[in-house]
């Protein structure tokens, strides 16, 4: 029985396009990908893009403008399965790295002054699931090649992707690294979703959290631990919020409310 190829679209909202680039960079597999799936739309890779019905839409970038929002709503409407790919789409990305949602309007004014926005209205950056139902998440900044391929192959076979639900520490131990946190280094491994194979700690660099929050990220414990190790409160919050998007906003607001 010959199965019809799945119709797939790859889209970029506000972000650096790094995830689309990574897909393009799967050089050895690229032909196989195009062979196995009917890639209907992939702006970075081809010009004859068709915006019709899709089996699977892979969407990177966060919703940061009214135009992003309209595009996302349109993609959702014509896709059976929507996968958020990359940190911006899964958690809001760096552009959502505000510690207080109330600061957003002020920041916008600070950066753009009184400049009139004519082509689209700016929105406070949010992950896709703030607006639409997201079926699967493929985190990472950018996404990891192996995780992308295992997600894609499962989707092509009709199975939901199975990503790690634990933090970076598990993969870090698999690679037999000495815990950086225990050596007094500000490492965000315990707060961060695994999937990168602990690439930074394996090179003696602390995890900065670029896979976004782990499912059970224990901000309170990590914060207290880092305070005990002598780190400055603002420094900890800044590091924690860089890639945590909207997930950490409440926690940060609560901490800020605590008088030293």
């Amino acid at each position: 029985m010959k199965k019809d190829k799945l119709k797939i679209g790859i889209y970029e909202l506000t972000g650096c396009a790094g995830d689309a680039l990574l897909i393009l960079d799967c050089e050895d597999e690229l032909i196989n990908i195009f062979h196995a799936a009917d890639i209907r739309s992939f702006l970075m890779a081809k010009s004859d893009n068709i915006d019709g019905e899709l089996d699977v839409a892979l969407v990177e970038g966060s919703v940061s403008t009214e135009r992003d929002l309209q595009e996302l709503l349109d993609i959702r409407k014509r896709s059976k399965v929507l996968v958020a790919i990359g940190l911006c789409a899964t958690a809001g990305g760096n552009q959502a790295a505000f510690l207080d949602p109330r600061e957003w309007e002020d920041n916008l004014k600070k950066v753009y002054g009184r400049t009139e926005m004519t082509h689209t209205k700016p929105l406070q950056s949010k992950p896709l699931n703030a607006y639409v139902k997201v079926d699967h998440y493929l985190p990472g900044c950018p996404i990891d090649r192996e995780q992308f391929l295992s997600t894609l192959t499962r989707l092509l076979a009709g199975h939901p992707p199975e990503l790690h639900r634990f933090p970076v520490c598990v993969e870090c131990k698999w690679r037999e690294n000495d815990c950086l946190l225990n050596r007094g280094i500000l490492c965000l491994g315990p707060l961060t979703a695994a999937g990168c194979r602990a690439v930074c700690p394996s090179h003696n660099l602390p995890c900065v959290g670029c896979w976004g929050p782990a499912e059970e990220a224990n901000y309170t414990a990590e914060y207290q631990l880092l305070m005990e190790k002598g780190f400055d409160r603002e420094m900890i919050l800044r590091k924690m919020s860089t890639f945590s998007g909207t997930a950490i906003a409440d926690f940060a607001a609560r901490i800020r409310g605590v008088k030293k």
Binding site: F166, V170, E216, A221
Partner: peptide
């Protein structure tokens, strides 16, 4: 339980 980072390190080692 509240302090646990649920990082799995104890089991790995």
């Amino acid at each position: 339980g509240r302090a646990c980072l649920a990082c799995g390190s104890c089991s790995m080692v």
